[in-house]
Design a binder for these strands. Sequence first.
DNA 1: CTTTAGAAAGTGGTACTACCAATTGAGTGA
DNA 2: TCACTCAATTGGTAGTACCACTTTCTAAAG
Lengths: 234, 234
Amino acid sequence: MSIEHDAGSSLSELFADDPLSGSLAALIQQMRPGDKLPSERDLAVQLDVSRTALRDRLGMLEGLGVLRRRTGAGTFVETLRPDALAFALNLAISSSHLPLGSLESVRIALERQAAAEAARRADPVLIAYMKRAIDTMAATELQADVLAADRAFHQSLLRAAGNPSLTFFAEALSSVLTQDLADRSERLSNEPLSTSRQALLVDHHTRIYDAILAGDPARAMRAVDEHFDAIGQS
Amino acid sequence: MSIEHDAGSSLSELFADDPLSGSLAALIQQMRPGDKLPSERDLAVQLDVSRTALRDRLGMLEGLGVLRRRTGAGTFVETLRPDALAFALNLAISSSHLPLGSLESVRIALERQAAAEAARRADPVLIAYMKRAIDTMAATELQADVLAADRAFHQSLLRAAGNPSLTFFAEALSSVLTQDLADRSERLSNEPLSTSRQALLVDHHTRIYDAILAGDPARAMRAVDEHFDAIGQS
DNA sequence: CTTTAGAAAGTGGTACTACCAATTGAGTGA
DNA sequence: TCACTCAATTGGTAGTACCACTTTCTAAAG
C-alpha cells in the first residue's frame, strides 16, 4: 500500500517535512554508538544531495548530540550524552527566561524518585558508595570538600537507582544548575563550614541512606523531601 | 585580565571551542523569542565568516530548537518548545536504546512533584479544571474518551502546579511516550471500557484531586503513587 | 481613492568548485 | 623493532551562482 513506509520508526515521522534528515535518521538508527559514518563526500553521492545540504543536516544532528564530527577523522554516532541535552537546555533556558527555581523543583522530583527506586532495588554494593560519600562529608572541614562529597552522594544515589533515564535527566539538569550553584558557593568555598550545618547535612544524608538500606521507598522519599526543605530555607 | 570575557554568560563557556557558535549564542541571548536575525548574508559579513560556515552553525542551533529558519522570510529566535526537546530526546533515545520503562519513571516523578506543588498553591480556578476532567471521565463510555479525559486531567494538574520547568519537561516526555502509549491503546480505543476499571480510574483521580483541594502535598504525592502503582500492574 | 495584480527585492535552500587543516596510516628509514 | 615522514583521507571554510519562496512595494484597474 505504502511505497516506502518504515514501520515503527518514530523518527521518520518527525522528519516528515524533510526527506534528507529522515534518510539520515534512518541510517543512524541502524548504527550503534561509536560507529563511523561514511565520509561526507561519499554520503552526499549516496543520498544524491550536495555536500552543502548534507553538512547542514549533519550540523543539526550534531547540535542534537546524536553525531560527533571530528576534523580529519570522520563523523561518528555518539553515545547519549547528558551534556548535549544540558547544552540544549542551557540555550533554551537562557533564551526563554525559564526560572532556575522551577528547575530546582524538577531536580528534587528526580532525586526523590531515585531514592525510591534505590530503596526498591537495595543493591548493597551501590549503596555502599553512598555511605562512603557520607563518611567523607563528615570527615572533611572545607566547604568545597563538603560540596564535593555532597555531589558524590547524589551521584551515587542516582547510580543506585539503576534507572538510566533518571540518571540522564538528573545529570543534564545538574550541568545546567552547576554554574548557578558555583556562583552561590564560590564565596564560601574556602572557608570552614559551620559545624552545626555540616552535622545537619550529614544527618540528612544519613537518613536517606538508612531508608534506602532498609528498603523503604516511602521513607526514602520523605527523607529526600526533608533534606531539600531544610536546605531550601537556609 | 581577560581580553574578552563575557561575565555570567554560561553559553559562551559551552562554546569555548567554537568562537563562531559563541558569537551567535551571545547574539541570540540578547534577543527575545520571535525576533528576527539579520539575513545570512549580512550576518556572515558581520561575523566575518562565510555564509557556508554560518549556515552550519545555524543548522545546529535550529536542531537545538533555538532558531527557526523560514524559507524566504528569515531566521527567527524560537520560543522554548517542549517538542524541540522531545525531538532531541526521541533521537537520543532511539539511537542509544534508553528503555521506555525508565522514562515512565521520570514521568511519574514529575507528576508527583506537580501534585505536591499544586496542593501547595491550591489555586481554586486551576484546580477546577481537574475536577472537570474527572467528571468527563466518569460520564463517558468509550475508552478513547476516557484516555482523552485522562490526558486532560494530567495536563490541568501540571498547569495547577504553576511550574514552567515541570510543565516543560512533562510535555516533552509526554511527546516521547505518546507513540508508545498510542500503540498500546490503539486496540482498545473503540471498545467500551470495563466499568470497574473506569470506576477505579475515576476514584484514583478523585483522590489526587481531593488531596490538592485540601492543600495537602504529602497526601497528593501518595495519591499519585497509588495511581501509578495500580495502573502499572494492570 | 481603494483595491488588486504584478513586479522587484530580499531571504533561505541547494549545488558546485577549490582550497585549508587536522588526522590517519602505510611505508621508509634508522 | 621503533620512530619518523609523507601522502591520502576527512572534516572545515570560502566563494559563486542559481532556485524557490516570501514579503514589500508599485502601478494598473476598478
